[in-house]
Simulated assay, not measured.
Amino acid sequence: MDVNIKHDKEYQQFTASMGEEDAELAYATPSEEVMDFTHTFVPESARGKGIANKLIEEGLCYAEENGKKVIATCPVVKKFIDRNSNYQKLLQE
């Protein structure tokens, strides 16, 4: 499934349009060099299609490209990082 993900810095989220509802990965910025991924949401009609993983990957790639460390408050993000060791280096110590 091809997904177009947009990053909205003002509202601190990555979104993918799913028709009536958007899928989203929300984050907070406790400091200028840290992104805390706090919440992942995918509409029920779009679940099971890898949308959350694409959102998370987009968020983590953005963090890496911008030299930011990551906090995985959202359990879905934590699970994704646990399964994808190449992103573990981004975790804040």
Score class of each variant (00 low, 15 high):
Ala16Trp: 02
Phe37Ala: 00
Asn84Ser: 12
Gly48Glu: 08
Val3Gln: 03
Gly50Glu: 00
Ala72Asp: 03
Glu21Asp: 06
Ala46Glu: 10
Lys79Met: 10
Ala26Leu: 11
Gln92Phe: 15
Asp36Tyr: 07
Val70Cys: 03
Ile5Asp: 04
Gly50Asp: 03
Glu58Arg: 15
Ile5Met: 09
Thr15Phe: 14
Leu60Trp: 00
Ala46Thr: 09
Glu10Val: 12
Leu90Ala: 01
Val34Gly: 02
Glu65Pro: 06
Ser85Met: 13
Ser17Leu: 11
Gly48Leu: 12
Val70Leu: 06
Glu65Leu: 09
Gly50Ala: 05
Phe14Ala: 04
Ile5Tyr: 08
Val34Asn: 06
Lys49Ala: 10
Leu60Tyr: 02
Ala72Cys: 08
Gly48Ser: 14
Asp82Lys: 14
Thr15His: 09
Arg83Asn: 14
Ala72Gln: 00
Tyr27Ala: 01
Asp8His: 06
Lys9Pro: 08
Lys9Gln: 10
Asp82Arg: 09
Lys54Phe: 07
Glu21Thr: 06
Ile56Asn: 00
Ala26Arg: 03
Ala46Ile: 09
Lys49Thr: 03
Pro75Met: 09
Glu64Leu: 08
Glu65Trp: 10
Tyr27Ser: 01
Arg83Leu: 14
Val3Trp: 07
Gln92His: 15
Pro75Val: 10
Val42Pro: 01
Ser31Phe: 14
Tyr87Met: 09
Asn53Cys: 12
Gln12Phe: 02
Cys74Gln: 04
Val42Cys: 07
Ile5Cys: 08
Gly59Ile: 09
Gln13Val: 07
Gly59Ala: 13
Leu90Phe: 04
Ser17Arg: 09
Ala52Met: 07
Asp36Glu: 07
Ala28His: 11
Ser45Lys: 13
Tyr87Lys: 03
Glu20Ile: 15
Thr73Pro: 05
Val76Thr: 12
Thr73Tyr: 14
Cys61Leu: 14
Gln12Val: 04
Lys9His: 06
Glu58His: 12
His39Tyr: 11
Gly19Phe: 07
Thr38Cys: 11
Glu20Tyr: 14
Pro75Tyr: 10
Asp2His: 13
Asp22Arg: 04
Ala72Arg: 00
Val77Met: 07
Ile71Ser: 03
Lys89Phe: 12
Lys54Arg: 14
Lys89His: 13
Lys78Gly: 14
Pro43Lys: 00
Glu21Phe: 13
Phe14Lys: 02
Val70Ile: 05
Gly19Trp: 04
Lys79Ser: 07
Phe41Thr: 01
Glu24Asn: 11
Asn86Pro: 12
Pro43Val: 03
Lys68Cys: 01
Val70Arg: 01
Val70Gly: 03
Ala52Thr: 04
Ile71Gly: 05
Glu21Ala: 10
Tyr27Cys: 04
Glu65Thr: 06
Met18Asp: 03
Arg83Gln: 15
Glu57Met: 10
Tyr87Gln: 00
Tyr87Arg: 03
Ser31Arg: 06
Ala46Asn: 09
Tyr62Gly: 00
Gln12Asn: 06
Pro43Trp: 00
Tyr62Thr: 00
Lys78Thr: 09
Thr40Pro: 03
Pro75Ile: 10
Val42Ala: 04
His39Gly: 00
Asp8Thr: 06
Lys49Cys: 06
Glu58Ile: 08
Ile56Lys: 00
Gln92Asp: 11
Phe37Val: 01
Lys78Phe: 09
Phe14Gly: 01
